[in-house]
Design a protein around this nucleic acid. Structure first.
Lengths: 341, 341
DNA sequence: AAGATAGTTGAAAGCGATTACGCAATTTGG
DNA sequence: CCAAATTGCGTAATCGCTTTCAACTATCTT
């Protein structure tokens, strides 16, 4: 069942059939109708791969996600899809499970031209690879990024945001503040750590090495690292934790040692995952404009695909600290908003 | 940068280059090396779409997931990918967010031959569509299914498993047992409800209409439906809940009314999501062999793609009731295993 | 009425790979 | 040592579309 079959039955050329499909207005109304009738009659489906081959466009973009399970990324994805669908792009998903090799595999779809562009929600590959890729193909980074790279990027300002979060704890009177980081090879972990350190120093507080523990994003890891902190002789009275999931693990560890959050230990984290608003206690956490990040990233990508010039390709969005119950704020209504850049 | 460029530089025909890539052993060793050198030198990447077009094979399969966020599906996916990668297939993901229209959109990639096959972790389309699709293209259902359909399927026996779960509550002495279902248009919801009803009837217990509430999979919905049950004049002493996520919502509702789980109300559910093993109290729940389901589904799909005959295409796997703390079992070690079919 | 313009249409080229086919060179075996 | 079998390789057709180009018609302009 191919286009020439349709053409024959409708008594026109394949050119006309093709035009009926892609620019119906360029075909006279009677022929158009005849062709459409035949298409319906034969239940003809164009051979998309042939089309892609001929036009050198796939109308497909790939989103590479480090962990498809995370509610955080699901929301970013929704933003991406919203824009993609409006522009007739199909979105396919690559799940790397935080593995660099898998990331490489997906990234390869670009030089193979199986997709027209890519938005990466993870950036663990080395700088040069990414830079080269971005020079040749439409690529935008979102959430994660790489320093000193010209690749278009949309994210929040993790450093200043982490600083703000830490200062929130300081303002509440804490001085012994610990930090559970993400895997330190991930830029986000390093940036949030940096923000934490800046806040400590700016406020004349010592950075205690033992107070900094490296986690790996997941619940158990939060539990384990928190347990280490609890075992310290001089244990902290507050912890800033890389993300909500580890924060939940940490809170569990605190409860298991018969201590209370926030009375004995205050907890703040990042992500504002749904569960963080619903567990006990509700977690004070940073919200990123996830949907917005996705939308803007996809907008950027479309511009790149269409060959438009993209100036100001580093977009920093507003974050928001959502004060809930896990660090005993002075006022439940108090909110610190981030700046837009 | 195309194959003919490589051919020219290596002083061979494109046929030889093509053979070097796909059947290296059919080319003499010196030419092969020459070609490989040129490929490396030019950094040549074959045009995959052109290949797909010519061979009519994409070496890609699509997995359609109702909710990419769910840890449950992530594990099934891992099983699928394991087998797919071993066989040089690329797996792409379609996220329907429980929407039938989106499901339709993805399913369409099959007739358009953008993928070689599909495993669907959701089956909300009507019977005829699915049946027709399956006649023409490689398709397997996993987890969800449709009654009286010849489409290859791998899942657990939800009816008997729900019966077993309900009987577990009955054996613990409960008679006032409620059930929070999933959306009733989803087959899994109907089957688990059926199992619940069978257990009640078999044990001479009345089915109280008010004790059956329809949820929609998510935490809030569990909270809301449980609140309704709690407001009943004669409230149940046990609830069987469609999945862990709603169970967590329900438990929250119970705690919010100053009642205790399992002392005042026992809770059982399905899925054995990680959180269910870690929340308070740890939830007694049904484990499905998720990874196994994925593996077997992909094995089946490969057979279909390769045109092998598939007999016994309805595969039912073992489930397992994991007794934890949310329904106060008599023994923590007690386990009920499902039968293999 | 002649030329200009706009609107429709079909013939055919071509996208970049794979592969059937045939020829030449080499190996095998009796 | 020769016929047969095998191996290695190039020529050219082909996959199913899109799109350029030229032709032809109908409508305007002057």
């Amino acid at each position: 069942m191919k286009m020439s079959d349709v053409a024959k039955l409708a008594n026109v050329s394949t050119a006309t059939v093709s035009r009926v499909i892609s620019k119906p207005n360029s075909v006279s109304i009677d022929k158009r109708q005849r062709v459409l009738d035949v298409i319906k009659e034969l239940n003809y489906q164009p051979h998309i791969i042939a089309r892609q081959f001929k036009t050198n466009k796939t109308k497909t973009i790939l989103v590479v996600v480090p962990d498809v399970t995370s509610a955080f990324f699901a929301e970013v994805l929704r933003g991406i899809e919203h824009i993609a669908i409006k522009n007739d792009y199909l979105v396919i998903l690559g799940n790397t499970e935080n593995k660099i090799d898998t990331e490489k595999k997906f990234v390869n779809l670009l030089p193979q031209r199986q997709v027209d562009g890519m938005v990466m929600l993870t950036a663990r590959l080395d700088k040069k690879t990414l830079e080269d890729l971005s020079k040749k193909y439409p690529l935008v980074l979102a959430c994660e990024y790489i320093e000193g790279l010209t690749v278009p990027t949309v994210s929040i300002d993790n450093i200043s945001c982490a600083r703000k979060v830490t200062e929130h704890l300081i303002r509440l009177g804490h001085t012994k503040i610990a930090h559970i980081t993400g895997p330190i090879n991930v830029i986000l972990s390093r940036d949030r750590l940096k923000g934490y350190q800046e806040a400590m120093i700016n406020n004349g507080l010592d950075i205690v090495k033992l107070y900094i523990q490296e986690g790996n994003f997941c619940f158990e890891s939060g539990y384990d690292q928190m347990s280490k902190l609890l075992a310290l002789e001089d244990r902290p009275t507050a912890v800033f934790i890389f993300n909500d999931e580890m924060a939940m693990g940490a809170i569990r560890a605190i409860k298991d040692s018969e201590l209370n959050v926030p009375e004995d230990i205050a907890v703040v984290s990042f992500d504002n995952v749904y569960m963080s608003s619903v567990c006990e206690p509700r977690i004070t956490t940073v919200n990123q404009p996830k949907y917005e990040i996705g939308r803007i990233a996809m907008d950027l990508l479309l511009k790149l695909i269409n060959g438009e010039e993209v100036q100001n390709s580093k977009i920093i969005l507003k974050d928001e600290l959502i004060i809930r119950d896990s660090c005993g704020s002075r006022s439940r209504q108090y909110r610190v908003r981030g700046e837009q850049t």
